[in-house]
Design a protein around this nucleic acid. Structure first.
Lengths: 342, 342
DNA sequence: AAAAAACTTTGCCGCGCGTAAAAATTAACA
DNA sequence: TGTTAATTTTTACGCGCGGCAAAGTTTTTT
């Protein structure tokens, strides 16, 4: 289909298509801004000559690019991978390019990523900050220059936040667990971000509301290797027979998965059935949580909603040219996913 | 630290730093190409004025960009996520920018991704093709224009391929499984790429080499939702009591994880111990495979080596200005990861 | 200390496209 | 058919940086 002659730039494309360069430029900026007859002629020529304008030249000159930056701690974590997937899809639909950068859990790389986004003149950014390790000052600075939505983990005083309402979700599952059996103890996650603190607080609050005694089991170790940490803590707990309750609520599913592995190894039957020794529950509705043994009872985070709401707010700000998004929070509700493990 | 005055471009930076613009340009292209005393002065000024050259302008003008494109089917799949993670890290170390695009399993998006990479003038690309669904012609065309390394899944006649030697890995585990118990039957994966075919072939060959009768269990359904497919097939198999062997080798770990869930649900004890009903093994050494119940016996793919070798070949080609990489294959060996499930 | 080598500065053009203003064309309407 | 509004063309400049050649400077070599 494509003609042999290689079109090198918009100038040449203008010649062969018989349409002036400014009009073509206008078309690529917004196809609906040119007359439909002109549009047809341009689109025919595009197919015929297989022309695409140079992205770098476009972005260098446009005041407002159509790039959205996404920064996540770990693309390997299924939670972030899912969020990114949704955002990417939505961006493509909206004619934006999603630039995904991973900070690999390092504050320095997170800082680099922000620099990169600035240098790419992104129209907006969605950031899942490292939290504790983040250079808050830097993110604050960034958010004051570029429309920014924080997701997953909150940061004080930085723009909009979109994430799960940990108090609602934890309340939901604590309530369920307490009614269906022994009140749960709570296995922490490493304090990698605000969720770690919020969920612990939420647990304590929920237990107190029910007139129960909160029992928190600290996690030993740092980093994002949650399954291993959960596994090791599980082994330790079972071996020492120090489990304060036979119902264990884990701060997230990945820790619960490690915990399940420990229980299995030690021959403890997990579940809410009569023959079971302990119950284990998680939080997030990790993609694999329905395939664990036994399937994991958990609370869902609404991945799609987090992605959609974040982008919606961002697009709104971009189109209204609000450089700075007023500080606010969007807290999404989760659902109890009742399976076998608790 | 940063001065108040905002530097808008290299020209201004040149003025305030007292160094000529071409020299600064040279510095950013390769810091070691300027005298160390000059380098120091530039670096001091960079810190003082917080200057970064405009990425778009750089890439528009450099004949050779320092961008590497990566295209994977699904960033949510831990295998690809790990590969991407390694490549990203290596690229950063080498001063390259890794542009990651996901085709979300759709040939059309894969085609778009290639277009995007072309338009971004990437110096090279690493592609894990969709396989069957890929537009081979398109990838072939792309590879003839841009130095390209295929990884994970092969495509006939397209440049270099770096991936696991399925014949070696499957041989390894078939050999082990047959010696330690009943010879395995083989649960397919959906034919999403060349690995699906290769592993099946490899299984048949290994069995025949051992003088055993290969038994292949087809998978029902399509797509990348491997755990679910494995789970459903597992349920079906167990219910119909049609298991041709009590040892099941799955084409990959994600299918094995689904299969484990099915076995658990049906009360079949999995493992190589005396009290176990069936053995289940996988392939890949998925990050979660050591936390399944029981821990999954599998063959490792060397994620790091795949990433490193791919990049090494690519950098070589880029630096030697070989637009076209001669067709060849790099097949990496895997190791038997013996755990409890088989 | 002179000569050679290595580096830096000056000056200038090019990259591919955005964008603005005025002139020319086309379409819509009475 | 003439008028008006909408669109396109013409013309011209700007964006921020790469790269080249010639001239000037510093460092290294002998």
């Amino acid at each position: 289909m494509a003609d042999d002659r290689k079109i090198r730039n918009m100038e040449e494309f203008s010649e062969v298509s018989g349409i002036s360069r400014p009009t073509i430029s206008k078309y690529f900026n917004d196809p609906s801004s040119v007359r439909s007859s002109t549009r047809d002629r341009i689109e025919q020529a595009i197919k015929k000559y297989d022309y695409r304008p140079n992205l770098f030249a476009i972005n260098q000159n446009r005041k407002l690019t159509r790039n959205i930056g996404i920064v996540v701690p770990h693309i390997v974590d299924p939670f972030f991978a899912e969020i990114v997937r949704h955002i990417e899809t939505r961006c493509i639909e909206a004619g934006y390019w999603a630039i995904v950068l991973s900070s690999h859990g390092q504050a320095e790389l997170e800082a680099n990523a922000l620099d990169m986004l600035r240098s790419l003149k992104v129209a907006g950014a969605i950031i899942a900050p490292l939290g504790q390790a983040s250079d808050e000052e830097l993110i604050h600075q960034f958010a004051s220059e570029v429309p920014t939505v924080l997701c997953d983990s909150r940061l004080d005083g930085v723009g909009v936040f979109v994430g799960t309402d940990n108090f609602q979700t934890i309340d939901l599952i604590v309530d369920y667990l307490s009614r269906a059996g022994d009140p749960p103890c709570f296995v922490e996650m490493p304090p990698v971000n605000a969720n770690a603190y919020e969920r612990k607080d939420a647990y304590v609050r929920s237990m107190e509301r029910l007139g129960l005694d909160p029992k928190i089991i600290p996690i030993v170790g740092e980093g994002w290797d949650f399954e291993r940490l959960g596994y090791e803590q599980g082994l330790r707990l079972i071996a020492s027979r120090e489990l304060p309750s036979n119902t264990i609520l884990c701060a997230n599913d990945r820790i619960a998965i490690g915990m399940l592995a420990a229980a299995y190894e030690k021959g403890l039957r997990v579940g809410r059935g009569p023959g079971s020794a302990i119950r284990i529950a998680g939080h997030d509705d990790h993609p694999l949580s329905r395939f664990t043994c036994p399937p994991l009872t958990t609370v869902s985070q609404d991945y799609t909603a987090i992605a959609d709401r974040s982008l919606h707010i961002l697009f709104d700000a971009i189109e209204h040219n609000d450089a700075h998004i007023p500080s606010s929070q969007v807290r999404l509700e989760g659902k109890l996913i009742m399976r076998i493990s608790a």
